[in-house]
Each structure stands twice: as structure tokens, then as C-alpha cells.
């Protein structure tokens, strides 16, 4: 039951709804009244992507169709772009990435939506070989009327490292889901995220990490902000299978609500079937610290600017955990620009 199947078959009942426990806060069936026609092919010029300057090569999808593929051995920094031209319609794309053992990949993924409503579904399969190292940065900038579902299935081999940061500004409905099959065996996972939402935007960051073997580490930090009538959703699930001892998993989700009509929903789950583990999660939702705000205003900083400044510092913790320097700078600039616009 996915958006992709509904787009393909035209069958609305294939859309996940509030009755599906994992989709209770991201209702697609209630929103999409009819399946739109397939998005038209687009041959025109596509503007440069946000990460082009950093990448050795790029892979480009436009309206669900692949336009450009990376050359073999092009380098270890690849831009992966999904562009929706915004002429209405629906499209789905899927792509598989295999990372050879003991290699490094920096995957700079962007979802770029031009103005206009569209339905987009992207499925990624990422297999990370033994001892390989992947950092995936996902920057999602959809149109306010768009519906976008991005699902990544990540398979890790022993000793692999997978680090991810998702940055999103939301859409009409948007879900960025990451499922990680964690073998333990000294593999390491970092799954971070940040969302900055205004207007009537909605963003759902869902993660499922399944620890299947001993000695695995997972660290998660998601921070977000919702103002106006926006809605932020965080669902994090950590599963520790029987026998996956010495698992060390931590998850944190912290969010700010800056208006009385915004909403944040969170479900941090731990499903533990092994006893020798150390798992924890923390979740906080609240307003900006009044004292800090007062302090800033007292020193002559206007209220809106002070709010943006404090929010930037709040989200900054996620940005600082990005290892790739260039990507970190772009992410920081994105946060600043986004907050400037919201303020």
C-alpha cells in the first residue's frame, strides 16, 4: 500500500490512511480525492541543483524519469537530484545504489519541486558493503501544494557506517521515511533530521532501525519547528531483535511550536527483544525559552529576529553533526534562509 502503487494502478484504496497505524498523522487517502494523470515528460532546461558545486558527478530525475546517470568511478561525492516541474500530475521513481566494501560515498540528495501541485513518490535502495562509509544528506524543498513520499531502504554489511541528515521545509503532505537493516557487528548508524515548517505545510520524518546482530550503534537526533498552521511529525522506531546484544541505541526528538495553531506529533518507539542492551529515547516539545527571548530583546534585537536566532541555534545542533564540510555549510545557509523567510 503505497503512493507509487496508487499512481500506477489509479486505485485510491492503495493509499495509506489514518487507519494505518504508521500513517495516522500523514493521511494520504483523506487528502487525495482522485489519482492525477502521469506527469508529462520534460525536456527543457533544468536549473542547477543545490549541491552541484560540491559533487563530482550527478544523477538527475525529472518528473520520475532519469535524465542523467553518473559515470562509473566518477568520484566519491555524487549529487542525486529529483526534480518535479510542477505541471500537476503524478510520478514515481526508484533507484538503487550499491556501495562497494571499504569505499566512501557522499550522497547529496535533493528533491526540488517547482511551483504547482504534484504527487511524487521516490524509492531508494541503498546497499552498503562491508567497512564502507556513506553520508547521505537529503534536502527536500517541495512546493506548498505538493505531495511527496520518499522511502529509502538501507542495508548495511558488518562494519559499515551510514550517516544521514534530512532537511525539509514540508509540503501539502510529505513523508521522508528511512528504514535501516542494521547487522550490528560494529556497524554504525547516525540518523538525523531537521524540519522548519510554516503556512499549512506538513512534514513527516519516519525512521525504522532494526538491529539484527550484536554490537551495533545507532544515534538519532531530530529537531524541528512549526509555526502558523504547520504540522511536524516524527516517528522513530528502534527494534532490537532477539540476540542483538550490546546494542547501543539513542534517539532524540526535540521540537518548537511557535504558534497556537501549529501541531507537532511524535512517536518514539523502542521494541526490545534482547536483554543486554542500552536503549533510550528523549522527546521534548515546547515553545522558545521566554528568558532567552527576553534577554535578546533587552539587548535591542527585534522579536522576530531574536526568534529566528534562537531557532537557528536550536536546529544548529543537527547541522553541526554533518561531516562533509561543504554540505554542512549549505545546510547552515538553508536553515538561515528558511528562517529569514519565515520570520
Amino acid at each position: 500500500m503505497t503512493l507509487a502503487t496508487a499512481l500506477k494502478t489509479g486505485d485510491l484504496t492503495q493509499l495509506p490512511s489514518r487507519r494505518d497505524e504508521d500513517w495516522r498523522w500523514t493521511d494520504l487517502r483523506g487528502l487525495i480525492r482522485q489519482v492525477p494523470p502521469a506527469s508529462p515528460a520534460f525536456d527543457g532546461e533544468v536549473e542547477a541543483g543545490p549541491f552541484d558545486a560540491l559533487a563530482d558527478d550527478s544523477i538527475l530525475f525529472v518528473n520520475g524519469r532519469q535524465r542523467h546517470a553518473a559515470t562509473q568511478g566518477a568520484g566519491e561525492t555524487i549529487a542525486l537530484r529529483f526534480v518535479s516541474t510542477g505541471e500537476g500530475g503524478g510520478h514515481a521513481a526508484s533507484y538503487a545504489i550499491v556501495v562497494e566494501p571499504d569505499t566512501t560515498l557522499v550522497l547529496l540528495e535533493s528533491h526540488e519541486g517547482k511551483a504547482g501541485g504534484y504527487l511524487s513518490d521516490v524509492t531508494l535502495d541503498i546497499a552498503v558493503g562491508e567497512g564502507a562509509r556513506v553520508e547521505r544528506i537529503v534536502l527536500v524543498e517541495d512546493d506548498a501544494e505538493a505531495v511527496n513520499v520518499v522511502t529509502a531502504e538501507v542495508d548495511l554489511a558488518p562494519g559499515a557506517t551510514f550517516n544521514q541528515t534530512v532537511l525539509t521545509s514540508g509540503a501539502r503532505r510529505q513523508r521522508i521515511e528511512t528504514r535501516v537493516n542494521h547487522p550490528g557487528a560494529h556497524a554504525q548508524v547516525r540518523l538525523d533530521g531537521a524540519y522548519l515548517l510554516d503556512g499549512q505545510r506538513h512534514a513527516d520524518q519516519t525512521t525504522i532501525v532494526t538491529h539484527g546482530g550484536v554490537d551495533g550503534v545507532t544515534s538519532q537526533l531530530t529537531k524541528g519547528m512549526a509555526t502558523d498552521q504547520a504540522r511536524g511529525v516524527f516517528q522513530g522506531r528502534i527494534v532490537v531483535a532477539p540476540g542483538a546484544d550490546q546494542t547501543d541505541a539513542r534517539m532524540g526528538h526535540h521540537a518548537l511550536i511557535l504558534s497556537d495553531k501549529a501541531e507537532i506529533d511524535a512517536k518514539p518507539e523502542l521494541l526490545i527483544f534482547a536483554d543486554d542492551v542500552s536503549c533510550a529515547h528523549g522527546n521534548t516539545i515546547g515553545a522558545l525559552d521566554e528568558d532567552a527571548l527576553f534577554y535578546a530583546e533587552q539587548r535591542g534585537i527585534p522579536e522576530l529576529e531574536a526568534k529566528a536566532m534562537l531557532t537557528q541555534a536550536f536546529v544548529g545542533e543537527v547541522i553541526e553533526r554533518i561531516e562533509h564540510e561543504g554540505a554542512r555549510e549549505i545546510a547552515a545557509a538553508w536553515v538561515a534562509a528558511r528562517l529569514g523567510r519565515i520570520g
Binding site: D265, A266, K267, E269, L270, I272, D275, I285
Partner: peptide
């Protein structure tokens, strides 16, 4: 958890719908 064959799960739902409330949640499994 005491023993290899038992299981412990934590499934909290948090829904905040206004900008003036504070919710804190923490959970551990050991």
C-alpha cells in the same frame, strides 16, 4: 529486562497542538 527470552517495548504517542505547552518524555531500556 531480566533474561534472554523476554521483551520490553515503549510506544508513546505525543500530540501537541498549541504553542504554549511543554511536553517532556524520556525512556530507557536496560
Amino acid at each position: 529486562l531480566i533474561g534472554k527470552t523476554c521483551a520490553a517495548h515503549t510506544v508513546p504517542y505525543i500530540e501537541a497542538r498549541n504553542g504554549q505547552s511543554v511536553f517532556e518524555h524520556e525512556a530507557t531500556t536496560t
